[in-house]
Design a protein around this nucleic acid. Sequence first.
DNA 1: CGGCGACTTGAAACGTGTCAATTAGCGTGG
DNA 2: CCACGCTAATTGACACGTTTCAAGTCGCCG
Lengths: 255, 255
Amino acid sequence: MNGTTLRRTRETKLTCAMCPAYRFNFCDVGVSLKCGSSASKSVPIYQTVRVSRPRSFILRDVDLNDAFPIICLGWAAAFRMLHDGQRQILSFLLPGDVMSATLLFEPKLTFSVEAITQVSYRILKRSDVRRVLRKSPDLYDKLSSIWIDEKIRAEELIVDLGRRTADERIARLILELAERLASRNMTSEEGGLGHAAVEMDFPLRQYQIANATGLTPAHVGKVLRTFHRQNLIRISSRSLSILDSVAFRRLAYRR
Amino acid sequence: MNGTTLRRTRETKLTCAMCPAYRFNFCDVGVSLKCGSSASKSVPIYQTVRVSRPRSFILRDVDLNDAFPIICLGWAAAFRMLHDGQRQILSFLLPGDVMSATLLFEPKLTFSVEAITQVSYRILKRSDVRRVLRKSPDLYDKLSSIWIDEKIRAEELIVDLGRRTADERIARLILELAERLASRNMTSEEGGLGHAAVEMDFPLRQYQIANATGLTPAHVGKVLRTFHRQNLIRISSRSLSILDSVAFRRLAYRR
DNA sequence: CGGCGACTTGAAACGTGTCAATTAGCGTGG
DNA sequence: CCACGCTAATTGACACGTTTCAAGTCGCCG
């Protein structure tokens, strides 16, 4: 049985040691909780690891469960659905991201999460996490950066949707993802001479970009095409390169 | 010296007992911290009370201070400013609202806050609040609802800006404010027979509605006018009535 | 090979923005 | 108390960006 024949969501034998988020040390949650940053001794946290296929749900907003899931591998999208079936993506989730920081406090979700690529994720028990937190409250401060980040990204998305053009929104989305991937060592420099290009995996479909930027798939396609023609970026086979990051950034920040 | 001749921001003798947020018992923060919901004895928290004039800054995003401010009276707006001077309002702040929940964890602001009406607010010392939190960590859960609310409203705004028309955005903003005011007993029923109208203070300028909904002042005016013509709402002298809340709600939620 | 989903492209429609001219409203100062 | 002056609201003509719709291509997987 290989990855592509996975049926639905299922549990695997994947351990933390195999998880890139943990290995590259950007899975702060796991590290904090297991190493017990305070003097308190390590508290055992029950974990399961699951794998979801592309386009399958990972969490539904109606579910009430005792889970605190963290992405180990792959991309996912947190989104809300409207009555008419339209979607608005609130954020893309990358390896090391907690799916929803609010789960620290309430077992309620404010959105659903869907796998974009194949996604493997660990599920900590919410009650375990809360128990650890209660034991060493200084962890609150460490974990607070998680939801502060969530909040900041949400606010930035509000500004994008409220006040920026399609070109700016798309450019900024790409740059945001590039930065988040870079901080995870998930980008590579293609050595151009004057200006090195940055390359990254980019599994997003145009309709997903549209759902994140409040645009139409058709229009996203047109904008990406103009970026391409201007030699700002190159997209091919689920991979994206920022060719002229100076010009691209100027476009995104409108100065 | 009366209220209208206030110069700039200044301190007053206003006490908590005079603050409507406290009196009506919707200032959860003050109540929790002072009553010490847990068994721990009440911890003294240093407070000052200030008054800001309309259109004056209450907090600047560049400030770094040790404050944890709570609105007692009046309306304010949390917003981000773009390079070109444009603004995007992230949320309106009403009596009882904490200005920024992130101040619980970091002395950094992600936005600025400006007074819309005259605003009186209490400033708790951040370090005091944190000390109390450390003493009784069960307060984290009580306070968590504050920033979960913040987050949910941010997400709803994202959906509005990304996926809804001007009419829907404006109608939903009005309904959101009506609900938040109602929960504070700050609305009144104008007894219509079949459908009672809901009336509330509404100090927002059209350009402020525009800055919150990602629209243009001119267009906001046109939409409000159509609402008026359809007898859905009535606006006069800083006061708004929802005349036909059924039809208005249908408009806002597009079914 | 067939079929489906994703992407491309273009024409036309639509919603919202832009701009400018005018009016209304309100606080301030004479 | 009135007049001034600023800010907000109103309105209309027009421009622009984005959507809508439809037709067609491409590539992948079964």
